[in-house]
């Protein structure tokens, strides 16, 4: 080998090292191809390493829910009482942690008041809803709605989710308790109660998630999941039942409205032989399922959605999704072996 050849080859090698992150998939000696999950317009690459932290210093138990705050940060709620709230930037870098008092920390909702961020946390072990500032100062704690006469004792109230209107009114779904939806004003004073356990149109089995849907500005409404029934139900803000959208086979957790679509983590597939059979589900503005990352492609026969189920064992028990301002999705999982969230990059 002459000196010219050596220099040419070594400079190519140097260039390769410097640029390897950009060109890593273009090398012919690597037959790797990135997984793309989902269907139609909603397809994603999967980053399993996002947000991984040292579990001895910043542990998680179940990762229940995630939201993005006004600063663009990703806020995670876990029921690990060493650090109930973990705040990341979008790249997965740890920014801060707080909270040691939420052993049943489950529901996490962002509310904005006069330009300031607040969090509503539901805790099914404390049987309470707790409002905090974004850095963890308690604003109020709300106990079970005893005066409604629907609850004999506080243990019957196991709230799983909240949602907030523009005027500060908020609703609470008691998905692990007596299955009522309670409506409060911004001060936490009770205005209404509806729902309850049962299989009727206006009732629930596992009223797990609730979401304010103001995509139609003239007819804002509430979306509430009946997870065990595999049904998404729509109610008026006054608590009147309006309609149902069946999602056969999908145990949908909470609805998350982002732009024109509704996103769901699906805890598991109803008839799967394995329990860790979850996936994600995305509906368009007509309530049609358009993409199921990790599961069967949604198909309709005579306008009826065919049963959905997990096809690849990527997700275990996905419990919530957070869609950021880049259209990427963060997936928090329950009972997944104390793993950190997964990030999906929209392609």
């Amino acid at each position: 080998m002459n000196r010219k050849t050596f220099l040419k080859q070594s400079s190519c090698a140097s260039l390769g090292i410097l640029l390897s992150p950009l060109y890593s998939n273009a090398f012919s000696f690597s037959d790797k191809k990135d997984v793309i999950i989902g269907h139609g317009t909603h397809r994603y690459k999967v980053d399993m390493n996002w947000g991984n932290l040292d579990p001895t210093r910043t542990p998680v138990k179940d990762c229940h829910e995630m939201v993005q705050d006004s600063k663009g940060r990703i806020v995670l709620l876990t029921n690990h009482t060493k650090n109930n709230i973990i705040i990341y930037d979008k790249s997965g870098k740890l920014l801060e942690t707080w909270g040691t008092g939420f052993p049943g920390g489950h529901g996490l909702t962002l509310c904005k008041e006069n330009g300031e961020d607040f969090l509503l946390i539901t805790d099914y072990e404390r049987h309470q809803i707790i409002k905090t500032t974004i850095d963890g100062k308690i604003v109020f704690e709300l106990d079970y709605p005893k005066d409604t006469g629907k609850y004999d004792r506080k243990e019957d109230f196991k709230p799983t989710e909240t949602t907030v209107l523009e005027n500060g009114d908020f609703y609470v779904a008691d998905g692990y308790g007596n299955q009522y939806i309670t409506h409060y004003n911004h001060k936490g004073e009770l205005l209404n109660i509806f729902g309850g356990r049962g299989t009727g149109d206006s009732q629930f089995l596992n009223a797990h998630g609730i979401c304010y849907d103001n995509r139609d500005k003239d007819n804002p409404s509430l979306l509430i999941t009946a997870r065990e029934m595999n049904i998404l139900k729509r109610f008026s803000l006054d608590g009147d039942y309006l309609s149902s959208v069946p999602v056969p086979g999908a145990l949908i957790c909470r609805p998350v409205v982002h732009k024109n679509h509704i996103y769901f983590a699906v805890l598991k597939s109803k008839n799967a032989p394995n329990s860790d059979s979850g996936f994600l589900l995305i509906m368009n503005h007509k309530n049609q399922v358009v993409s199921c990352p990790g599961a069967t492609a949604p198909t309709y026969q005579d306008q009826n959605l065919e049963e959905l189920y997990q096809t690849i064992r990527l997700f275990q028990h996905p419990h919530d999704v957070c869609i950021d301002d880049d259209e990427n999705v963060y997936v928090a999982q329950w009972n997944s072996g104390q793993t950190y969230p997964i990030k999906l990059i929209r392609t």
Binding site: S20, D34, V46, N49, Y309, I312, L314
Partner: peptide
């Protein structure tokens, strides 16, 4: 170079061979 490229590609996005089908 080969080692670096291989490792980077594995670390960034999930590969099909990492996951079992149902």
């Amino acid at each position: 170079l080969l080692f670096n490229c291989e490792k980077k590609s594995e670390n960034v996005f999930l590969q099909p061979g990492d996951i079992r089908i149902a």
